[in-house]
Write a protein that binds this DNA or RNA. Structure first.
Length: 638
RNA sequence: GGCCUCAUAGUUCAAUGGAUAGAACGAAAGUUUCCUAAACUUUAAAUCUAGGUUCGAUUCCUAGUGGGGCUACCA
């Protein structure tokens, strides 16, 4: 199912129309001013128009330095002249002031109050027709041999939010998952289970399916480690180390025995380990379709899927379709052979098939091993082909960590060589790695942060904070459990989404469960206040205002609100949900200031109360929509 | 070694080439007979180095230094 339009509140935010319209109007009138006053021909887009910094009076500022050279007058004189022209020709302008080369424009109060009254249409968020796409967006991509960790949280959050945002600006978006459900890693879990579980199941142990499998993945490594330690004392091992020491002349940079065997582990697994041989045999049996092996594989994967589905539900994410690697890797091999036949690839004497990407500075890459088995890139070729048949998309977005930049470049070039119509639309939405304060996560070394554990921890923290502050006392047990889950899940999403996806981010467990400051809970709280005000106001909102003057903070809020559609468009074009996250925080912060500085309901002037309630409600709706786009559900009470 | 990326307060993050570089956490000090104090106010605190382009550079270019990633017949 495609992403729905942002939830329709009973009352909606003003659209960008007025905002964009006034910006354009200022640009156009200024262009005329330059032409009329100085004979300078320019275009509206070339006028530099910025929001005015708050230390000066104004809503917008025009920067005139760019025209100084042509006009050959002092910047102040130019700014003054344009200001006077605008005063004559721009009815919305209340007054202006000049600071150096900056012309600060202050618009009329009633212009802004009228702007607030405008109702939005969802089309106001839409990009122009030519920019719209039919998109297949892949995110999450777990392996079925272990539970999901912190890194998966970032793709889940970014993927889901980006799908919402891209749909909000008018694209057709299909969310899909890729399940890496085959290969040597899964065989390791299967083998360890066979050897050590004595028939235990998630049901018999009460352990969530994906965590259950994870136990055996770790157990395999423990068994291997023990086997390896023993092996290091065998004559074979001693000879290998001896040969290494004898190689070359320079002995100074040689590794000591411990370090050597640490880096030799892969080699050991592939060529000396009995467990390794068993795992590979299992993989071969699986590929050959051995009934018992396939049955075991299916049973264990089903356990994992059950666990994953629980996590998806808790995170509030979903997929229109999940593609399993096991369904496509054979087709991938076929595509490579087809490509070879058509001369796009070449074969080495050992029968392995390669692609030459030197002209793209990507070197040469194996597509099919000499033993005929497929590569990572091969399966992605078949998967995108299947998606094209399913959706005929013109853009394929992959929300995958940036450590795979090379992989996606190769994928695209290979498909381009083959002349596939879906090659051009490949877009790797590469997000930066997530680091811990202790450094990089290593799943085999146990330095990962489990996704489920983390979310539960934040939910608990939210509950503890509420109890400490004696909040939510009127709620029933189920109501409050529901509330803390929404707040906790929202907090973790926000913590991840408020950073630009492109950047490597540090995940500090302490900070991530911090509920204060720049966090989703802060935004939720501002939203809750707007809802409380509406409840107390308890009558229909006004359809017009009778106010003569706006406070500064009120102007700021209206301007902020009117920028929202532009922010959403920008987030879609930049593939950057953090723009919306930071926008929402900024708006919530300004609202809290407004709430403290000015009486809303406790006001003798009913006209002012009407207006401020309307403004509060607008802020609340905007916050709710912003959170919704990020995949966070706004709460009404807390 | 080659290619790609990043560098901003003690820490984590912001800043279409524009004015005095914004926040949060942490530190210090305040605000509650008043619409929810999960809030608000105040103080101290930063653009890696050297050049260049520009009226103007955190932003663009070059070099250097220091992180990270990729460079597997792993996924």
């Amino acid at each position: 199912m495609a992403v729905e339009w942002v939830k329709n509140n009973n009352f909606a935010v003003p659209n960008s129309f007025f905002f964009m319209q006034i910006e354009n109007k200022i640009r156009e009138t200024s262009t005329k001013a330059l032409q009329t006053l100085f004979g300078v021909a320019t275009t509206p887009e070339k006028i530099t128009l910025n929001p005015t910094p708050k230390e000066f009076e104004g809503d917008f500022s025009i920067v005139v330095f760019a025209f100084v050279r042509d006009i050959r007058r002092a910047p102040e004189q130019i700014a003054q002249a344009i200001g006077e022209y605008l005063q004559e020709n721009l009815p919305e302008l209340a007054r202006f002031n000049v600071q150096k080369g900056f012309l600060n424009l202050y618009l009329k109060d009633n212009f802004w109050s009228e702007t607030l009254l405008q109702r939005p249409q969802k089309e106001d968020f839409f990009l122009s027709e030519s920019q719209l796409r039919k998109i297949v967006l892949e995110y999450c991509g777990p392996n079925t041999n272990k539970p999901m960790h912190l890194g998966h949280l970032r793709t889940m959050m970014i993927g889901y939010a980006m799908a919402n945002i891209l749909a909000a600006v008018g694209n057709k978006v299909h969310k899909v998952n890729i399940l890496n459900d085959r290969g040597i890693a899964i065989c390791k879990s299967m083998l360890a289970w066979k050897k050590t579980a004595y028939g235990a199941t998630p049901q018999s142990t009460g352990i969530k399916g994906d965590h259950f499998i994870g136990i055996y993945y770790v157990k395999f490594d423990t068994l291997l480690q023990a086997e390896y330690a023993k092996w290091q004392h065998t004559p074979t091992a001693i000879k290998i180390y001896h040969n290494y020491m004898e190689e070359g002349n320079d002995k100074t940079d040689k590794l000591d025995k411990t370090a050597f065997f640490k880096q030799y582990k892969n080699e050991y697994f592939n060529h000396h380990s009995a467990l390794g041989a068993e795992a590979r045999t299992m993989l071969q049996l699986w590929e050959a379709g051995d009934a018992d092996t396939v049955a075991l594989w299916k049973m264990m994967n089903d356990w994992v899927y059950e666990g994953f589905n629980e996590t998806y539900a808790k995170m509030g994410i979903d997929f229109e379709k999940e593609y399993k690697e096991s369904d496509y890797y054979e087709r991938g091999k076929e595509m490579v052979r087809e490509g070879l036949k058509e001369g796009f690839f070449y074969q080495k004497p050992d029968t392995s098939i390669w692609v030459d990407l030197n002209e793209n500075n990507l070197g040469e890459k194996v597509l099919l091993r000499s033993d005929g088995t497929s590569m990572y890139v091969t399966q992605d070729m078949a998967v995108i082909e299947a998606r094209y048949e399913d959706y005929h998309m013109n853009q394929s977005i992959y929300v995958v960590a940036d450590e795979q930049n090379y992989h996606f470049q190769v994928l695209q070039k290979v498909l381009e060589k083959m002349g596939k119509p879906y090659a051009e639309g490949i877009f790797h939405l590469a997000y930066g790695m997530v680091n811990l304060p202790s450094g990089k996560m290593k799943s085999r070394e146990g330095t990962t942060v489990d996704a489920d554990d983390l979310v539960n921890e934040v939910i608990d923290k939210t509950r503890a904070a509420a109890e400490l502050a004696e909040k939510s006392v009127g709620l029933s047990e189920t109501e409050s459990a529901n509330l803390y889950e929404k707040l906790g899940v929202g907090a973790i999403k926000y913590y991840i989404l408020h950073v630009n996806p492109k950047k490597t981010m540090l995940f500090n467990p302490e900070d991530s469960i911090n509920i204060n400051g720049h966090s989703a809970v802060f935004i939720q709280y501002a939203h809750v206040r707007t809802r409380a005000i509406l409840r107390k106001y308890n009558k229909p909102l006004p359809t017009s205002f009778d106010i003569t003057q706006l406070e500064n903070i009120e102007r700021e809020l209206i301007i902020s609100i009117s920028q929202f559609p532009a922010v959403v468009k920008e987030a879609a074009q930049q593939y950057d949900p953090s723009l919306i996250a930071n926008y929402a925080y900024h708006l919530a912060k300004n609202f809290n200031r407004f709430f403290h500085e000015l009486p809303i309901l406790n006001n003798d002037d009913a006209a002012i109360t009407d207006f401020r309630v309307y403004l509060s409600a607008s802020v609340g709706d905007t916050l709710a929509q912003a959170l919704h786009l990020l995949g966070i559900e706004a709460v009404d009470k807390m």
